[in-house]
Design a protein around this nucleic acid. Structure first.
Lengths: 211, 211
DNA sequence: GTCTATAACCTGATAGAC
DNA sequence: GTCTATCAGGTTATAGAC
């Protein structure tokens, strides 16, 4: 058990609201919208359930808020990479290094994405347009095919979905794989994850290359 | 809504039990262990909840039974491919064609695997040894590296996890991707899926190849 | 703004009739 | 073997005091 997020000593609407959002991101990342317990979010925040309804009206809206925040964080980050200045192979590697680094810092991103697809079939992701998660990747792939870098038969849509799946699955399965890594209990440890990043980036680049 | 599975006209223990298992596989594939509703499974089967407890004692055991069945089906199928008789690149392609064909027929396999990792962190998969799902794949990768077919730096463990992720994610996201495929509402339609299989097998093979 | 108390609901499981 | 009825537990959401 982690210790609860610090709660403002005095009454502070903004601090409380932000604190609830942080705790909610963790809880939704662990259990999904349906499985998350508002009681747990409240406890982690150091307030009562009533506060969640005071600030967010209900669990569903809180979830929307978490998705929005997580999602716009990612969007801004991708923009900051300045992909158009790179060659397609460079851009592809950059996207995945960056995505994997974020996943390492905030594993919730991966599990929230998958939970959302599985539990809600993308209902809430559609509200905030999941396309902008895939479109930078698809653009790079299209550019790479047009420029002769990538395999001409490559379908940018299937390919981008497959690549995102590759990036996301390892994290989601990390506690399911103890039998594969009997010697290493923590697949999110720095060393193991660094190796994972190298393997994954190499695979991503190889997978699309023209030959 | 699908129509309920046919129920034996007369009392038939075996038929009822099998029918519950079928309905349960669908329900667990759609909602995971936690989200599945025994009421829904019963309704789909055409019996009452009490029958589930009569045959399987409780929801958890029913889930175990579904996992066991799904899993052993897959295991037998992989054995039947006779991978040792193939070269590593052939074997790799064969594994994925076969896996994708099964996913097309029974998409629940993919979602159950991911739900199990996410919701239960592999607790029940560990009971039936998830390793045997990955080990045929890892063996082929090791053989391919040793034989000079595959990239010598390739780590069989990270690689096999990534590849499984690629195979599984598309199905799990199929209803999350309408914005990417505005022209094609059903990503499980025969044509679209056939294209997906070709793209995916090509990517898998490319990803590991020595260059 | 924050808390306590409780309403309203849902779900897994059981008892007992047929 | 199968059903009906019901219990026990847990969860979201709200009302109202402070």
């Amino acid at each position: 058990m982690k210790e609860p997020h610090l709660k403002a000593a005095t009454r502070d609407a903004d601090a409380t609201k932000a604190s609830i959002l942080d705790a909610a991101e963790e809880e939704f990342g662990r259990y999904g919208l349906q499985g998350a317990r508002t009681e747990a979010i409240a406890a982690q925040t150091g307030v009562t359930k009533a506060m969640i309804h005071y600030y967010f009206e209900n669990k569903e809206n809180l979830y929307r808020e978490v998705l929005r925040r997580t999602f716009s964080r990612r969007s801004l980050q991708i923009e900051s990479l300045n992909l158009p200045a790179m060659t397609p192979p460079e851009a592809l590697a950059a996207i995945f290094r960056d995505l994997l680094a974020e996943i390492f810092k905030h594993p919730t991103i991966a599990s929230i994405l998958v939970f959302e697809s599985l539990q809600n079939r993308g209902k809430y992701y559609r509200e905030i347009s999941v396309a902008s998660l895939y479109s930078p990747l698809m653009e790079v792939l299209e550019r790479g095919v047009a420029g002769g870098y990538f395999c001409p038969k490559l379908d940018p849509r299937h390919t981008s979905v497959n690549l995102v799946g590759m990036a996301v699955f390892y994290i989601c399965s990390r506690e399911n794989l103890s039998s594969l890594w009997p010697d290493e209990p923590d697949l999110l440890s720095g060393e193991i994850f660094a190796g994972h990043v190298e393997t994954t980036v190499a695979m991503v680049c190889n997978a699309v290359l023209r030959r």
